[in-house]
């Protein structure tokens, strides 16, 4: 798994953002280190602390660094001169909270530095798409996360041409719809599975989005009782679709009570 470093002026802000993101993953999260505050309890950032955090999580897979603003960026660029690891270290301009959540989920699923960074940087897409639905942010209708997975989706002709294609539909039973936690479970369930799976909200006519994209799935904004269509191709297409139909039927483990 790639390493993740969270740089903030405020230790409380960094810890809270990490705690929020960790709710999305299970027992074995990716290596995460916080570099927040300067000196003795001062609001600020410290390049030496950032370098130490990078070295702490580097394990050969690359390190993605999230920053809040201002000196966090300066300290992080400076830290790349102080660190001792030879891992690729990338400072991402992804949004702090949304990006971190997307990154932790995808990193936990074993994605590469490139994939995690791309997903994190597209992480504003879910919120933009949600607000656009409510007329709140009309400029954001073409949010990148909503677009990117759609571009991956095969055209109708290509679909029928792929002999491995499997499709199934299932109604969403979760009271809160397909929100962040179930979306993260989908990404993790598909990690390492030999299948390319897309999800369409048939009821709302939204999608398809890639099943590997937390933000893409969240951007569907699928609500309870909407019918989801899963379409997969590849060696384990049937298995992938079956798994998702089963998970959807069980309400992604949220129907316990």
């Amino acid at each position: 798994m790639i390493g993740i470093v969270v740089v903030s002026h405020s230790p409380a802000l960094a810890q809270a953002a990490v705690d929020l993101a960790l709710e999305m993953v299970g027992e074995t999260p990716p290596p995460i280190a916080i570099a927040a505050g300067a000196g003795d309890g001062i609001i600020g950032t410290d390049a030496v602390k950032v370098a130490a955090a990078i070295d702490e999580v580097a394990n050969g897979e690359g390190v993605l660094v999230f920053m809040d603003l201002g000196s966090a960026v300066l300290s992080s660029t400076m830290a790349t001169e102080f660190m001792t690891t030879t891992d690729e270290v990338r400072l991402t301009d992804a949004p702090f909270v949304e990006g971190l959540i997307a990154a932790i989920v995808l990193a936990n699923a074993g994605a590469s530095l490139d994939e995690v960074d791309r997903e994190a940087r597209a992480a504003m897409g879910a919120k933009q798409s949600q607000l656009a639905d409510q007329g709140g942010a009309p400029d954001a209708v073409d949010a990148p996360a909503a677009e990117t997975p759609a571009a991956d989706a095969p055209a109708a002709d290509a679909v029928s041409a792929d002999p491995t294609e499997v499709t199934a539909e299932a109604p969403l039973v979760n009271p809160d719809g397909l929100h962040a936690r179930p979306a993260s479970l989908i990404v993790q369930a598909l990690a390492g599975v030999d299948a390319k799976l897309t999800i369409t909200d048939v009821t709302a006519g939204k999608g398809p989005v890639s099943g590997n994209s937390l933000i893409g799935i969240m951007s569907l904004g699928a609500a309870k009782d909407h019918v989801l269509k899963f379409t997969a191709t590849g060696g384990s297409a049937q298995e992938a679709v079956d798994t998702l139909v089963a998970m959807t039927g069980e309400g992604f483990g949220e129907l316990a009570s």
């Binding site: 410290d46 602390k49 300066l74 660029t77």
Partner: peptide, 10 residues
């Protein structure tokens, strides 16, 4: 770098 905290540190 380690004591200022703000952008003037780096």
């Amino acid at each position: 770098v380690t004591s200022v905290g703000g952008a003037s540190g780096p």
